[in-house]
């Protein structure tokens, strides 16, 4: 295995008693990439991430994370990894500033705690106790703790579950900023728009394996599949499925002698592709 990828997974397997959680999963993530793992509940996303984080042993397969097997990795490896936990409720009695400052001490090249708090937009709350933060503020603190050590690789496990739409947008901007600085990011999510907005590449997990993988715009042949052209023929809605929507529109334009009433062209959304993928394999 080379160390050129940030994460390299071959044939990963993990069973819990009778349940197979991860069943021959392959995944390759380059440095600087943002990859989203999508999948229904129980598809093995969290198990996979926890194995990559070194929290769980695996039953089979080869993994290299930053060139090291996470199960045997030591403190120096941990200094390069940032983990944003899914449902942490720790440090409730500390203030935001105390918490970030404390975690900064664990890392040799930590970011300035005040700057990290500003980056996640918690400067106004820096002196408040963690337990009084809202859900969204709490998750942003989790991100602050995750990035204060200046990680090369950041794990985000369902980071925006329970956010309101505005908080999600703010959170996305934060993640885009980190990605822009060159941080490699692996995130799991239930939200297709989140994967579409943040990820360079999407991996869809079903029953413990990757069933499709690619950029959000073209995953599972999304860019190559047929488009649907709709228009109004009098008051009557019409639609045509075609490989070449431009030609259909040109013919319609010629026939109508100008603008075509009610014209629209649509490709399958990421959601359509996703539902098709998880429906056809599960």
């Amino acid at each position: 295995m080379t160390t050129q990828s940030a994460i390299s997974v071959r044939g990963l397997r993990k069973r819990y008693r009778s349940v197979t959680a991860v069943d021959g999963l392959d995944l390759e993530i380059e440095f600087g990439e943002v990859v989203a793992m999508l999948g229904p509940n129980g598809a093995g996303k969290t198990t996979t991430v926890e194995i990559l984080e070194g929290f769980r042993p695996r039953d089979g397969g080869e993994i290299s994370v930053l060139g090291v097997d996470p199960h045997r990795a030591g403190r120096e490896w941990r200094q390069q990894i940032g983990i944003v936990l899914q449902d942490a409720a720790d440090a409730g009695e500390l203030t935001v500033a105390e918490t970030v400052t404390h975690f900064a001490r664990y890392y040799p090249a930590a970011r300035d705690p005040g700057e990290v708090i500003a980056m996640v937009g918690l400067t106004d709350h820096a002196r408040r106790r963690v337990r009084v933060l809202s859900g969204g503020q709490r998750r942003r603190l989790d991100v602050a703790i995750g990035v204060v050590g200046r990680p090369r690789l950041l794990f985000l496990d369902e980071p925006t579950t329970g956010f309101d739409p505005q908080a999600r947008r703010q959170f996305w901007d934060l993640i885009k900023g980190l990605a822009g600085d060159g941080t490699t990011i692996l995130l799991t999510t239930h939200y297709l728009d989140e994967a579409g907005a943040l990820a360079d590449r999407v991996a869809v997990l079903v029953a413990g394996r990757v069933v499709a993988e690619g950029p959000p715009a073209s995953i599972a042949g999304r860019s190559a599949t047929v488009s649907t052209v709709c228009w109004l023929e009098g008051a009557e809605p019409r639609e045509v499925e075609t490989d070449n929507p431009a030609q259909v529109i040109a013919e319609l334009t010629a026939r109508f002698g100008g603008s075509v009433p009610g014209l629209s062209v649509s490709r399958p959304s990421l959601e359509d592709v996703y539902l098709n993928l998880i429906g056809s394999t599960s």
């Binding site: 403190r75 200094q79 440090a91 409730g92 009695e93 500390l94 105390e98 404390h102 001490r105 664990y106 890392y107 040799p108 090249a109 930590a110 970011r111 300035d112 700057e115 106790r129 200046r150």
Partner: peptide, 30 residues
């Protein structure tokens, strides 16, 4: 972002920092 590169803290040093966090956490829970 400013970086302050320093030697990673030792086990005892981090332990004492943990002690500070433990005491704050304990004594703030009335």
């Amino acid at each position: 972002m400013t970086t302050s590169i320093h030697r990673p803290a030792g086990t005892l040093e981090l332990g004492l920092a943990r002690g500070g966090v433990e005491l704050k956490t304990f004594f703030r829970q009335k």
